[in-house]
């Protein structure tokens, strides 16, 4: 799968360039996230603005990524489209992840937290 990544301050912005985050790409996505976490990224903003649909495998992969962080650092999400937001709420993942409207809001909130 295609995954865009770039730094914004201390945060790593990760943007899946897929319109569907589903069973077809979930395993690959999870492995890529785990690599990023293993390589020392502790503040990650997952930008889902390109994702139009996410299924339970995709959501599971995001939860696994959070678990892999082991309570050290932050993994937040931003840019959720309506369908994705519905599914986040449906699974109550919005209570586990901080959800921001945009990448800028996420980065600024995380910098605020740090300060």
């Amino acid at each position: 799968m295609q995954l865009d990544q770039r730094k914004a301050g201390d945060a790593l912005i990760v943007t899946p360039l897929e319109d569907r985050l589903d069973a077809r790409v979930a395993t690959d996505f999870k492995e890529r996230m785990i690599e990023l976490i293993a390589s020392g990224n502790t503040i990650i903003v997952l930008d889902l603005s390109k994702v139009e649909f996410i299924d339970s495998s995709g959501l599971g992969a995001i939860v696994s990524s959070l678990k892999r962080m082991g309570g050290r650092g932050e993994l937040v999400v931003c840019g959720l489209r309506e369908t994705t937001m519905t599914l986040f709420k449906l699974t109550r993942m919005d209570r586990v992840f901080q959800v921001f409207d945009s990448e800028q809001q996420a980065v600024s909130a995380l910098s605020g937290n740090k300060g």
């Binding site: 599971g60 939860v63 449906l90 699974t91 109550r92 209570r95 586990v96």
Partner: peptide
């Protein structure tokens, strides 16, 4: 959940 409360997640 983030506040440490019980959070049943339908997965």
């Amino acid at each position: 959940d983030r506040a440490g409360g019980y959070n049943p997640m339908w997965m």
